[in-house]
Structure formats: structure tokens, C-alpha cells
Design a protein around this nucleic acid. Sequence first.
RNA 1: GCCGAAGUGGCGGAACAGGCAGACGCGCACGACUCAAAAUCGUGUACCCUCGGGUAUGUGGGUUCGAUUCCCACCUUCGGCACCA
Length: 828
Amino acid sequence: MSEQPKTGADMIDPTSIPMYKPEEIEPKWQARWETDRLYQPDRDPEKTKFYALTMLPYPSGDLHIGHWYAMTPSDARARFKRMQGYNVFFPIGFDAFGLPAENAAIKHNIHPGKWTYANIDRMRHQLKSMGNSFDWRSEIISADPKYYHWTQWFFNQFYKNNLAYQKFSPVDFCPSCNTTLAREQVHGDDRHCERCGTPVIRKDLKQWFFRTSNYAEELLNYDGLDWPEFVKTLQRNWIGKSRGASVIFKTEAGDPIEVFTTRPDTLWGVTYLALSPEHPLVEKITTPAQIDEVRQYQEQARHQSDIQRESVSREKTGVFTGGYAVNPVSGEHIPIWVADYVLMSYGTGAIMAVPAHDQRDFEFARQFDLPIKVVIHSNGQELLSPEEMTEAVEAHGSMINSGRLTGTPEEESFEAASRYIEEIGVGKESINYRLHDWLISRQRYWGAPIPIVYCQHCGVVPVPDDQLPVLLPDDVEWLPTGESPLKLHLTWRFTTCPNCGEPAERETDTMDTFMDSSWYHLRYLSPDYAEGPFDPAQYNYWMPVDTYTGGSEHAIMHLIYTRFFHKAARDCGITKGDEPMLQLRNQGMVLGEDGEKMSKSRGNVVNPDDLVSRYGADTVRAYLIFFSRWEMGGPWSSTGIEGNTRWLRRVWHMLLEPSFGEADPEVLRAMRRKTHQTLRRITYDFENFEFNTIVSSLMELLNEMGRAKNAGAFGSEEWNEAADIYLRMLAPVCPHIAEELWERLGKPYSIHTQSWPRVDEEAAKEDMITLIVQVNGKLRDRIVVEPGISNEEAEKLALASETVQQALEGRPIRKVIVVPGRLVNIVV
RNA sequence: GCCGAAGUGGCGGAACAGGCAGACGCGCACGACUCAAAAUCGUGUACCCUCGGGUAUGUGGGUUCGAUUCCCACCUUCGGCACCA
């Protein structure tokens, strides 16, 4: 590119050095490393293991720059750990089931499996071009029967241990296409089908669930985990624990209606009950006079999403059922309404309404002219009058108008009310969680079949473990017919009962792909193992995962599911320990050059293949590590990457191009000091995921070495040490150029099996330090002193400074603060 | 609305435990090399200035000898949740 082509005469000139050609050295070393199985660790009880895991990609087509951004620092850190002497396992695979494959199949009339495996072939090739230290022996593909065999096996174990069950649950359904839709297939405010535009309805289907809510409390515990605070907060909010009371109201006919409240102290203020439109008791409670109106209301609610129903800005709607319930503490008869602001998916699907002290109930009561009863008196506030209130007062306070509990002060009201309802047998204190059980049924083709058979005689029969996997049939009609392809595959669907041998029918739903990704880190350990999901010997050595890296978009779903999965498997006797991943770190996102999210429609997508052919993988790696704080991400810059190209070219010439002369010992000592200071810094940065400063430190050291080289340092003992340490520090970031230069300097293959150098603290020590001198906190002078200088001496030197005396203007000194090794501050 | 993260030169970012703000890189300017350009190398580059200094880390307060860093309030951007009873 930049240099003149070498002539034959140049080639034999010892001072002429070859060009840096990443396009030649990178494939060469990648092939060599693969042949030599450089990154394939075996279990070694003598060595401390380190399981570095990066989130497995979905094979959507091409490797995205985002994959590079996520994986490069993860790889660099795995390499760093390997050089530190750990036995490092860094596997990779593909999360290969999912809806995009089915969409592509419909669009291009190609089998989802064919599409997926073609993408995997391409992406595998692209992944290898990054020069990552993946152990490809361990590669898994979640759509492979050899993998989903064990996904199904896990389902069976959960079923056996009562952690899987069936219940009716609504799905979005297109009445025109006669098919269920995934959330992303429903578009627009009117929630229409993406294919035909018909507004969707909600339809109840019998579906499979895992009992995640059994683990809600345990999932709130992060003891011993080094996870980002924000991820833990997101998960805690998602789990949504609230402390309150469950209270049983009875209808006039005597049917119990259970409600959950966080404010048992407001029980005497309940003036109506509200049921969700889907609540099972609605039908029974509704009087004949109200039945038409109620049915109409339920019907319109079916067409709305929870999001729409929950929109706060919306006016409250509801209808009266005609039925009444009895307030268990006051004995008052209160009306029962149906209202869509009550969600079937939270609590019990029924609420006790306290308009005076809950804003939603207040709005509803005003809308429908229902009574408002004040039962809380906040300290120091005027007594509330229902007629004059313009909003609910949700503050706590002492209880009033509350029978025997009237006068209970604020601090005791929650406990007193809870105790009271328990005493009179109408309820008790309880905890409620927002976290639902995990719905794993998908009315889709491209997933692992749920290994269940329905038999007329035996009922629900799991396919026995020794008959797994239930293979996904290939010969299906995946074109849009309005039905799940598996339902139409009659020879697959109709089978015999594994129990009694009579005709039976298979479950035609497949499993949520989050199932596949909940345990892939275990299959990596022994991808060909046939006796179980993983080889216990491998498990005992490698688990748990030491560092898990990936995108924060998985902070909630995937990371809760995989934690649940581990705990559930533990309780089935399969896994050990309470948590699968000890340390978690999330990277940010690479944005387009315009600062917006990359997307094809915006035309701001950066293609990594182009970058590699233009700059080489090492430059792309270096730039991705350098350009922003990893956890932040930021916009791509096509000029910025040039800086990293220049840097690597400078490294190449710096180490290979000889120069002559003899350097001053002081120059050599300074270079050596900088070398060891940089080593200390970079070691710290690798440990702490501060990747961008690793590259800038390397640049700084190169600048220092350049100055030393100009002063004649090349070829000295100190120079050779600096070059050696430099390449070792460079190796995790830019593995190819480091290996090439390592070889050219005549060092033993491979640099990636070398040890991480040790800091020589003596060499890193400063001979002299600069103290800053402040007057009233303002910088006035700097003085160069011995590192061990006493406070008194430092103070004396500071006061002797001319500029300091000038700044003092003869004012009397009040105080002198000396921070050893840093500064002297004179306060006047 | 609630929860979380972040706001530093023209740009990306640095400042490890409260102590020299702007490391490193991009961009830009000037110079060297060149017939010329590219590449490369060198120098400079926050702002104001009366050349002594003054002002600057989203805004306004506070704590402190000293605040980009800690506390309070507010503004903006991004992400998550969104009538959660």
C-alpha cells in the first residue's frame, strides 16, 4: 500500500525490512494455531481452570460488527488469563432455533434448517477470521438433534419433579390466518397481523409452563456473584417482590374472592371490588340484568394488549356485574365491578378498591360515582373530606374510621391490620411477585418439540428418556397455511402411547428458544457425550462459569432463565451449586457513524468482512478495544480506525527496523521504567475489563520506545526486554502481528503459550517525583524531589518557591497541607 | 410516571482511594521528505487575555485546604419497566 515495492537488491540488504501485510500473516497463523490445537484445553487437575463464556450468536446471516465488539475483548481477556497460567476454556456455538429462520423460509421458500445451517457455515468462517482463541472442538448447534435431545431431557426431568405443568394461557391469534402470532408479528396500535392486516384477538390455549415463580425469592439473592449493579436492579424490578396481605372477600352467595393488597391498613376504606375481565368468577357473579353489558365488555377487552390496557393516560372503563360482596372487616356490602385496569396476570386478578388512598381506584370511583371513604389520616395534614378530594392520598398515616383499629399509629398500622385479619380468619400477610411462571410453549415449527404424548387412556405421557430425542420432522409444509407445520404432519403427529401402545397424539408445540440458551454452557463441556447432557467429570472440573460476557439486552430474560434453569436442575439432582455464572460483564453497542443504531434501512451498517480485508483483523480488534469504554459503546468512526492501522505499522517498524548508536544509561533506565509501569497498568486493566486504556497504554509505551530508539537504545539489553514485554502485552489484543513479530525476533513458538510477564517494581519506581504546590488550592508551582522526602522538607521547599511567595502576597499562612508524594497546599 | 446509566476540547475518550483536568487517538494547522500527491516523520492544537494571568468537566447550591470525583436540587440524552393492587 504505502511503501515502494522492494527490488531484488533491497531484499538482501540487511537493513531492508518486509512490509506489514496482515492479509498474509493472519490466515497463516490462524491455520497454524488450528493445526496445533493451541486453544483446546484438556482437563488438568494441576492447573487452575478458567471458564470464559461469551454469549452464543444467533445465526441470522452475517457476522455483525456488534459480534466483534462483544467477542474481541472477551477473547483478549481469555488470552490474558491463559498467559497468566490458567487452564482457559473459551467455547463457541450457535443459538440456531427461532422465528427468523421460519420467516426466511416463507420468504425465500427454503427449509428453515437449510437456511440456518448455511448461515452457520458462513458465520463460522467469519468468526475464524477474527482470530479468536475459541475451542472449536466444543462447538454446539442448538438445532442439532444431538443437542436438543438433551433440551428435551431437561424438560422431562422438570416434568418429573413437578417443575413443569400445563394451564390455559392467552396467545395473540389471527382469526383470518387461523394462526397464533409471536409478539413481533403483531403490528401497530390496532394490533394487526403482519401478514394479512386483520386485528388480532387473544385466544386461550393450553400451554406448558415452568415454575420459575417457585424460585422468585432465591433469584433475588446475588450473594457471591460479581454482577453489574444495574443488571441486578433490573432483575429485582422484574421479579417485583411486594409485601402485603392476601384477603378473602365473600360474595353475597358465599363465593370467596381473594385479593392481594400492599395496604391492609386501608381495608375499612374498600368501597367496591374490581375483577379482571378474564376472572373466572365474573360469569357466576353477574346478574341476568347485567349479563349483556358484561359480555360485551369482556369481548372488547380480548382485542386489547396488556400494554394498551395498562396505559395510565387512558380513562378508566368498567361495568357493574350486579353482584355484591361483603367487606370482611366492616361487614359492609360493596358492589363488584369488572374493570380492565385489573390484570389477570398480576396478583389474583381481583382487587379491593380504596378510592381515597389509591389513585387508580380514585379515578374509577369518580368516573362511576362510587363512594369514597377516608380511613388514613396523615400526620400534620388536614382531615380529608371525600367531596373535596381531587386525587387519592396514598401516603401512610394513622388509621381512622377503622373499627377496633381506629387510632393505630402509622408505624404499627401494617402489622396491626395484618394481625387483625389473621385473627378473624379472613386473610394473612403475604408476599406477591411480579415474576410469572415461564411459558415455554411456542406454536412454531423451528424449535425443539416438547416431548409429550397425549393418550386417551393414559393422559399426558412424557416420552421416556430412552426414546429421546423426539425428532423434528424435515418433510413439513412450512409455507403459511394458518397452522403450525407440526399439526399438519399427520404421520408425525399421530403416534402410539409409549405407555400402553394405543393410538395417541404428540404435542405439536415446540419449546421457547430461551430453553436452548439456558444450558448451552453445560453442553460445551462435552458436546458428544451420550450418557447425559454433560459429562460429570467435565462439569466438576470446569463449572461454574468464571466470566460471562455479552449484551445487556439479555440482562433480564436470558439471565433470569439461565439462573432459574440451574437452580431447577440442582433441585432435580443434575447440577451443583446455586449459580451458573460467577462474574458477568456487559458491553455496550456500536452505533453507526451518525450516532444512531445500525440498521440496513438507515444505511449506516459497518460490515466487518470489509474492514478485515481493508485493515486486517488485528487493526479491527485494536480499534474496537480502543475507541470507547467497553460497557458504554458508541459511534463507529471510519477515520478513527486509521489511527490503529498507523499504530500497528509503527509497532512493526519499531521492532524490526534496526538502528545504531549507544544510548545514555538514563534513557535506558527511563524506558525500562515506562515498560514496567505500563505492564502494571495493563495487568490491572485486563483484570478490571478496562480495555480501551490497554491500547492507549501500549501506544504511549511505543512513543517512549521511539524516543529511546532515536537516542540509540535499539539492540540494548533494555530494548530487548522492552520488545519482549511489549509483544506479550500486545498478544491478547492483536494475536497475529504479535505472533509474527515474536517469530521474527527469533523467539520460540507460540507467543500465546508464553507466560504473562512480571512487573519489576524496582524498575517501575520513579527516581524523582514532581510535587505540585498550591496556594489556597490553586496550582502555583511544581517542585521535583526525592520520592521519600519528609513532609517538613517538602513544606520548606514549597515555601522557598518564588512563584509561591509571589502568590502569597505576604499574607500570613494559616495552614499547610502536605499529601506525601502528591502536593503541598498552603492556605492563607 | 417509576427505576437505572451517562453528560469532560471540533470528535472518541483519559484521570486506580477527593489532589497537575484533557493521557492516548481522530481531526485540523504548520514544517520535513517529494517535481507533485499519498504514505511517513517532526511541531503545535480547551477557551479568554491587557501576556501578568484569568476561566473551564450539563446547570445551581453544599461539604472540603482542595471536587470531573462526595451530598442535595434541577436540566438533557440513552436504556428498562410501565394502572403491579
